[in-house]
């Protein structure tokens, strides 16, 4: 049986996470290939619908990465994103997918290592949770709970 490889969508703000990813790349930092990045003009571009769409289209986990609080180039975009991620968590709980599959992170363009760390963190979290209930039939069986603890 193949080991479960999650599909994770990362909505990354152009000014921070996206540049941090570049930096991580040039620093040759490894991060899991399970994370697929989507560039955003600002994390404030995110809305619940976009997050839900990702799950509907097969994601097992989603995260939004925006600038550090106070550093958003559109002033409050990352605060809005944080609230919307909160709303999405609620909806995901309601529909039985689980709010813990979505998260909000804040970083700056110079935080290459932190970018890699976040990607690892999310990868581990989703791996432990197993595939999204929508992907269960297609993917391998979820890992036993114990396998998740480190």
């Amino acid at each position: 049986m193949n080991e479960f490889q999650p599909k994770i969508v990362a909505f990354c703000c152009y000014f921070c996470a996206y540049s941090a990813a570049d930096l991580a790349g040039s620093m040759r930092l490894q991060y899991p290939p399970t994370v697929r990045m989507i560039e955003q003009p600002c994390s404030g571009r995110i809305d619940i619908q976009l997050i839900l769409q990702a799950f509907e289209d097969g994601a097992d986990g989603v995260y939004v990465a925006g600038c550090l609080e106070g550093d958003c180039h559109f002033l409050k975009g990352n605060f809005r994103a944080k609230l919307r991620v909160g709303q999405a968590k609620k909806v995901l709980d309601d529909v039985g997918i689980g709010g813990e599959r979505v998260e909000m992170y804040n970083l700056s363009g110079s935080m290459g290592p932190r970018f890699a760390e976040v990607a690892h963190e999310m990868h581990e979290r989703i791996k432990n949770l197993g595939p999204s209930p929508l992907n269960k039939t297609a993917a391998s069986a979820p890992l036993p709970a114990a396998a998740g603890s480190e």
Binding site: I48, Q53, V91, D94, G96
Partner: peptide
């Protein structure tokens, strides 16, 4: 319109399971 989209997707996500 926004809430329509979210409700529609939510229902689909639920029922797909």
């Amino acid at each position: 319109e926004k809430e329509v989209g979210v409700l529609a997707t939510s229902l689909r996500l639920l029922r797909k399971q």
